[in-house]
Design a protein around this nucleic acid. Sequence first.
DNA 1: TTTCAGTCTGTGAACGTTCACAGATGCTTC
DNA 2: GAAGCATCTGTGAACGTTCACAGACTGAAA
Lengths: 333, 333
Amino acid sequence: MAKRPTIHDVAAVAGVSRGTVSRVLNDDRYVSPAAHAAVKRAIAETGYVLNRAARSLVTQRTGSVVMVLSEPQERLFEDPNYSVLLRTATRRLAERDISLVMMIAGNDGDRDRVVRYLRGGHADGVFLVSTHAGDRLVDALVDIGVAAVAQGAVIGRENVIPYAAADDREGARQMTRYLVERGRRRIATITGPLDTPGGALRLEGFADILGRKASRRLIEHGDYTQLGGESAMARLLERAPDIDAVFVASDLMAAGALAALRAAGRRVPEDVAVGGFDDSAVALTTHPPLTTIRQPLERVAEETVRLLLALIDGAEHVEPVILPTDLIVREST
Amino acid sequence: MAKRPTIHDVAAVAGVSRGTVSRVLNDDRYVSPAAHAAVKRAIAETGYVLNRAARSLVTQRTGSVVMVLSEPQERLFEDPNYSVLLRTATRRLAERDISLVMMIAGNDGDRDRVVRYLRGGHADGVFLVSTHAGDRLVDALVDIGVAAVAQGAVIGRENVIPYAAADDREGARQMTRYLVERGRRRIATITGPLDTPGGALRLEGFADILGRKASRRLIEHGDYTQLGGESAMARLLERAPDIDAVFVASDLMAAGALAALRAAGRRVPEDVAVGGFDDSAVALTTHPPLTTIRQPLERVAEETVRLLLALIDGAEHVEPVILPTDLIVREST
DNA sequence: TTTCAGTCTGTGAACGTTCACAGATGCTTC
DNA sequence: GAAGCATCTGTGAACGTTCACAGACTGAAA
């Protein structure tokens, strides 16, 4: 349990001064090759590892960013997409030696904690996930002036918080266009909550293709849960029994819709075609497997990280990134 | 962009010394009510928030713990259980003002990064997730002497790394017993990888009930993926066409097994009963919905955090915690 | 030869806390 | 009235870095 070696110890072993060691550590210019080598050797010999707290104290940088999970409903519970996001972001940040701190913003108490944390300068940046319209956390972030990006647009704050996202609108168009091309005539949709980009934009894409045919009667709203999808489908069937296709804004809700259709005695895809969105693991476990829209989630995460790093590095302004989606045809259509 | 207020500013406003403010901040004994109130008021007035880096520098504590995701295969991708774990752990730790830093240990490079991070004293504790037998990270942790716990036993290191887990073995017994009671005679199993506790212990529980009847022919191994479950089921059917039930060690693999059974023309549950494990979201999306074993994941996470906090607070030794599971009967059996 | 720019190094001060100590005050007890 | 204890407060030093500055050395240009 010997004391951890400090920069002084390294300096002593290398036969140089503290300043030179610091310069090596920070890749500063003006270090002679000899000194550089000696320091490297001394670091290896002593097993030195930098004390971030001490560095942070003087640089006012922390080398960490916060990922804030806003948690409307219990989405987090069920959505495997978070894992991809988390994993990719952690990886990319680690490459820059930046660590990812998790925080949850479920209620106002949580949100205050996040704000306090950031106001205290405990992180260099913020990575928002599934933040919904009107979240007052967003304004607090702007007020604090901390670098912030979001995965998926924050509705109403698109120009304030840069983001990367899949092209929800075009994805919905792809699916709707496909259903039309397959000869479906009465096409309904089950949307996500309209204060989320996935809710609003996928509905817009749907309407883009169908125009006047996208009547109110053929639109139902879900909450991204399987149960929500199931009851939305039931309501649709009651209101418009003659529908022959439905575009559901998430795979999980689509799984619920399949259950409702089965309960109503409709065959999929013969009587009703079902299209999902996400291409999550669920799309393969249902029977029949879901035709769906694949989002390039990994790339979304990477781009979001890239935007955040740019902001942290001092960029004044960065442009949102929108990435293309793919139609994945399986047996539900 | 005024400078952030420090403890000195608070002291000045409150009309006390730096030491007294520090005492209030740390709930020390021996602070007069008057001083306490004045400091509280000054903190509110100045908007002061503590600088953790400075504190950390002198206390040698960081106020953070690392969650290390070991990533054999692509489990993380598909397993929604991680979300529950992450969410619960983050919450519980936040209550103690400890923040959760994510790290991935997928390859040796990652592992070195984790080791270096911990050796540098950048975290007060470690929370291992899905670490598999023989992971050399575990020995490094012991060597460093950092407080460490695991979610789920680390096979071969049960006595070194305390853990909380669901009672995998008894859960498997519950399911197997149930299948026997339902009159099934030829019961097979699809296990997880045997270097994970869920793989080894669930197989043991299965064998506990069936005794000699648990013959090699009726045991197949999967990798916790849906595809793995599907091909394992196909192999089982080929080897033992007369099986009338199968206990699958995870819901996701069970979804794959259902697909294989359907492809082979077997009806579920009439011809073959299928039991899963986890009670994850998948269990409800399959057709028919899965009979499965529910793990108290939230409590597992809470207990794991509790163990970790105890170790951080200086406990010499803590006992592993094993929590009971529940049989959830649905339509697949 | 002098000047200058470029390269390299060492040093004091600062970052914002906590800790240990010393000292002051008030209350009890003899 | 002195001694002793508990309560409360202020202060210097320390934690391990980075930063800005000053100074030494080198080689090229004037």
